[in-house]
C-alpha cells in the first residue's frame, strides 16, 4: 500500500514542480502585465495544489493533512483576491486619459 502512496506522491510533486516551471516561463514570456499576472497566479496556485495533494499521504496525522489543505485553500483565496486587486489598480490607471 505504501508504495502506491509513494508513487502517487512522486507523480503529484513532480507535476506540481513542472507547473511552477510553466508559471515562471509564462511570467517571462508573456507580453503585457495582465497576462503575466494571470500566468503567475494561476500556474503557481495549481502547482502548489498538486504539491499539497502529493504531500497528503506523507502527512503524519489527520490534523497535519488538514492543515496542508488549509494552506492550499488560503493560497487559492489570497492569490485570487490579490490578483483581482492588482488587476483593478492596473485597469483604473490605464482607463484614465
Amino acid at each position: 500500500m505504501t508504495s502506491l502512496a509513494n508513487a502517487f506522491t512522486l507523480v503529484a510533486v513532480g507535476c506540481g514542480a513542472l507547473l511552477f516551471l510553466a508559471g515562471t516561463l509564462g511570467l517571462l514570456r508573456f507580453p503585457d502585465t495582465l497576462s503575466r499576472l494571470h500566468a503567475l497566479s494561476k500556474a503557481d496556485n495549481l502547482g502548489l495544489g498538486l504539491i499539497v495533494l502529493g504531500l497528503l499521504p506523507q502527512a503524519e496525522s489527520f490534523a497535519g493533512g488538514l492543515k496542508l489543505v488549509c494552506v492550499w485553500l488560503l493560497a487559492q483565496i489570497s492569490a485570487a483576491t490579490a490578483s483581482q486587486l492588482i488587476a483593478g489598480v492596473l485597469y483604473r490607471r490605464k482607463s484614465r486619459p
Binding site: T24, L27, L37, L40, S41, N45, A75, S78, A79, A82
Partner: peptide, 8 residues
C-alpha cells in the same frame, strides 16, 4: 507581483 510569486 514578486511578493505573490515569493508567497506561493
Amino acid at each position: 507581483m514578486a511578493v505573490q510569486l515569493l508567497g506561493t
